[in-house]
């Protein structure tokens, strides 16, 4: 009965929320049919500062953000501060897991032959794909977070697939720490060079080239490394058992 009531309440709430959202957001029309003065148009056109100019892939140069991926330009350029916050959230979660489980005893899993062999072959490939994804974050879908997670998955696979994992996680910590610190230093460099924190102070190049979009690729590499090392750390910590009250 209790569960039915909860289900009912959740459904009612969901109904109201979807109706409310429907009144605010237009899901049913293509972007070109929407109000031209909406704020998001400026993001789409890569034209927040109002310098104008058409957006042509492979040709437009020195755009304000310079990323071919709109999502990336929002996440790592226009609202880069939020991303800094998000990696901090992940950092905190890793810290929390470390504090709770870090002092526990490591358990070793026995893994089968197939897993061991496959892990040896697949894990490097996964690692490579992960690196690819976050280095191309400004060009293709993906970016630091998925890329980093993929790296962590590779680590997990490697972890399952080998009986003798080195318990020394110091390098992971170092990567995590350095990447995070570099992100902030990059932001501060923006403050000193261009005048505001996390500002894109490098030339943005041509839209669609690998070396373009200023600091965006750099940030995404750092984010990828940080996320990868952090999630790996979490995985390693979760494998410990501790008796807690």
């Amino acid at each position: 009965m209790k569960k039915l009531v909860s289900l009912f309440l959740i459904l009612v709430l969901a109904f109201f929320l979807t109706t409310a959202l429907d009144q605010g957001l237009d899901f049913w029309h293509s972007p070109s049919q929407l109000d031209a003065f909406r704020m998001s148009n400026a993001f789409v056109q890569n034209d927040v500062l109002g310098e104008g100019g058409a957006l042509v892939f492979g040709e437009s140069k020195n755009l304000e953000s310079g990323s071919a991926n709109i999502v990336t330009s929002i996440v790592v350029d226009y609202r880069s501060f939020d991303t800094l916050g998000e990696i901090t959230v992940l950092f905190l979660s890793a810290l929390g897991v470390g504090l709770l489980m870090g002092s526990g005893v490591r358990t070793t899993l026995r893994s089968g032959f197939i897993l061991k062999t496959a892990a040896k072959m697949v894990a490097p490939l996964m690692l490579l794909t992960g690196i690819y994804i976050f280095t191309h974050g400004h060009l293709t879908p993906g970016g630091g977070f998925p890329g980093g997670s993929m790296m962590a998955t590779a680590f997990l696979l490697h972890y399952f697939g080998s009986d003798t994992v080195k318990s020394n996680l110091k390098p992971l910590k170092w990567i995590e720490s350095t990447a995070g610190a570099l992100y902030i230093l990059l932001g501060l460099a923006g403050l000193f060079v261009a005048g505001s924190f996390l500002q894109n102070f490098l030339p943005t190049g041509t839209l669609g080239h690998l070396v373009s979009a200023g600091i965006i690729p750099l940030v995404y590499v750092l984010v990828g490394l940080k996320v990868g090392s952090e999630v790996s750390g979490i995985v390693a910590d979760f494998s410990k058992t501790e008796v807690v009250s």
Binding site: S6, L9, I10, V12, L13, F16
Partner: peptide, 9 residues
């Protein structure tokens, strides 16, 4: 949580 959901509804 129940109160929160109920009040919003």
């Amino acid at each position: 949580v129940f109160w929160m959901v109920l009040l919003v509804i």
